[in-house]
Amino acid sequence: MTEANHAERTRPQRAEDQRDILDIVGLTVALPGRTGTGTTVLHGVDLRLKPGGIHGLAGESGSGKTMTGLAVMGLLPPGARARGRVLLDGEDLLSLSAHELGAVRGRVVSMVFQDPSTCLHPMLTIGHQLTDHLRHHLKIGRKEARGRAADLLGRVRIPSPAEALSRYPHEFSGGMRQRVAIAAALACEPKVVIADEPTTGLDVTIQAGVLRLLRGLCDELGLAILLVTHDLGVMSAIADEVSVLKHGRVVESGPRARVLTAPRHGYTRSLLEALPGRTAT
């Protein structure tokens, strides 16, 4: 029955045997501790993303969701050590040099960060921040980049996108800034986007709009999304697969319908029970 639910999705089902675009194998991350011993925040995490798929990553605060994203991006805090493999289209990101990683970041894999109000530079225009990486990665001119940026802003439903380019972050609401950040992450048409709580703090209608946008991009462009959220409601609305993290370990992973309706792990069940107006079956 759960499989039937899954097949009911309106969008075309991607071939099951399609190669994973992002394959995280045994990712272990240790952060330098105050005493020098270091604390391990991720213990052998495995996650796989298919092109065009949305993989939801749930887990309570501090479980290591953001760390997983940062490890993929190679943006762990200074002194952190990552082991395991992060295969992006077959290439291990953990083994890349800083220079090689620079060519991948923002171009093949990008990240939308958790706090929208602080992730844009307050003294640079939206246009500057939407086009600098576009121009760097795609080697296009200023005018063309601005055209594309305005296009993107339109797609994330920013009103009068052309004027918005010459405005500064403080002239936008938190929700708009969040959508600008999403636009920046999508600018170079990456294959994978890590979206860390992209809808937290947005009101319900805008949240729905952002989720629809992400879903649409997956279907249209074959974009794969690692959607970090502790909102299981968002998860059930959009994710194809769901993984649940606890204390840096994946305790549950599988198709959305199976995980959310028939959780195997007690922890997932308790998460589901914590949802208002909802009980785990």
Binding site: G102, R105, S110, T118, H121, L124, H133, H136, A185
Partner: peptide, 26 residues
């Protein structure tokens, strides 16, 4: 230590650009 610097790095900008445009400006 600001998030916007991390975001700039996440966009794959060269370190020199991050430094000049994002860090020094700030």
């Amino acid at each position: 230590s600001q998030d916007y610097v991390r975001s700039a790095r996440a966009k794959g900008l060269p370190e020199r650009t991050v430094l000049v445009h994002y860090v020094l400006r700030g």
